[in-house]
Simulated assay, not measured.
Amino acid sequence: MSIPTILVTRPSPAGEQLVNRLRTLGLMAYHAPLVNLSPGNDLTRLPVLLQAMQPGDLVFVLSQNAIRYIHPLLNRNKLSWPAKLTYYAIGRSTALALQAVSHLPVNYPLNVSTSEGLLALPELQRVNGKQALLLRGNGGRALLGETLIIRGAKVSYCECYQRNPVYYDAHKQSAYWQHARINTLVVTSGEMLQQLYTLIPAYYRSFWLLHCRMIVVSERLAAYANRLGWHDVRVAEGADNDALIRELQ
């Protein structure tokens, strides 16, 4: 492939940060977020939910976006992350972000930033009688919660943020991206992948979109991209911007 011209679809601020870093490295990159973020419907309930948990109960933080909304809420209420709980993160970047604001240990899978990787941790094989609180956005995969229930945990969810679709003029945006010679796409969720596929009209999809290289963050997402018609799909080592830059270079 020729020198990459990259379209980053992840929401702000991470999407803008990634584009700025790529441009600093001399690469052509554009930002077109397919979702924007807002506070979740359950966010204000979270302090009560955390305080009601017992020592040793489990808290799962499923993205850095959750921390972005939770930590300011705790600060405003003069609260801290309860030290009596055991914390898990979906991947290294989320774990480091949580450690930075909570000053507490956070467990995470070392090799893959996925629900499957998290569920493979030895300490999560037997969770009988534990309360498990999943801090996440609206919707998302049910695998983590369903598996923890099978293993004996009592699972509850807290919607800490919402992903809201960003709407574009399909023909105008497709023509602009093709004219800009976009040939590499960065997509970090199945929701955004489906939205991108649906946004682009069939003509542009056949002659341009499906011929772009696709950079994704999990094997599951790569398989989905293949089913939709992409052939050149690469999986980054993680979902953080550092891993994406390594793959793009």
Rank of each mutant, 00 (worst) to 15 (best):
P109F: 00
R151I: 01
I67M: 13
L143A: 04
N111S: 13
V101N: 07
I70W: 09
H71V: 08
S93R: 11
T147R: 12
Q64I: 10
H103Q: 15
A97C: 11
G137W: 01
S115H: 09
N111A: 13
R68I: 06
V155Y: 01
I90M: 06
R126M: 09
A97D: 11
R92L: 05
A170V: 12
L73G: 08
P82K: 02
E123T: 12
G139K: 12
P122I: 08
S80A: 15
E146V: 03
L143S: 01
V59F: 10
A153W: 04
A132Y: 03
Y87C: 05
N164Q: 06
K154P: 05
K130L: 02
V106D: 01
G137M: 08
P109Y: 00
F60E: 03
Y167R: 08
L98T: 05
T147D: 10
A95P: 04
V61E: 07
L133H: 00
P122Q: 11
S102A: 15
I149Q: 13
A66T: 07
N164K: 00
T147N: 12
V127N: 01
R163T: 01
P165Q: 03
W81F: 15
A120L: 14
A97V: 04
E123Q: 14
L96A: 10
V61G: 04
L135D: 04
V127P: 01
K172M: 13
Y157P: 07
G137C: 10
S102T: 09
Q131E: 09
L104M: 08
V101A: 10
S93K: 13
L58A: 04
T114M: 11
V112M: 12
K84V: 05
A89Q: 01
S63F: 08
L133E: 01
I67Q: 09
N75S: 15
I149Y: 03
L73T: 10
K130Y: 02
L119Y: 08
A100D: 14
I90D: 03
F60V: 04
A132M: 03
V112T: 14
L133V: 01
I67F: 08
G117Y: 03
G56N: 05
I67K: 09
H171C: 12
L98F: 09
H171P: 15
S113C: 02
K172D: 13
V155I: 03
S113E: 12
A89H: 00
L135M: 07
V61P: 05
P109S: 02
N65I: 00
N111W: 07
L73P: 10
Q173P: 06
P105N: 12
C158F: 11
L85Y: 07
E123H: 14
L74G: 13
L118W: 10
S63Q: 04
T114A: 06
K78H: 15
P105E: 12
N75K: 15
I149C: 07
A66D: 08
D57A: 05
G145H: 09
Q125E: 14
Y157F: 14
L121M: 15
G129P: 08
N77L: 15
Q99P: 05
Y69S: 05
P122E: 09
R126S: 13
Q125G: 03
L144A: 02
V101P: 11
Y69Q: 09
L148I: 00
T86N: 12
T86A: 11
V106G: 02
T94I: 04
A132H: 06
L85C: 09
L135N: 06
L143K: 03
P72R: 13
V112F: 13
Y167Q: 11
T94H: 02
R76K: 15
V166R: 00
R141D: 11
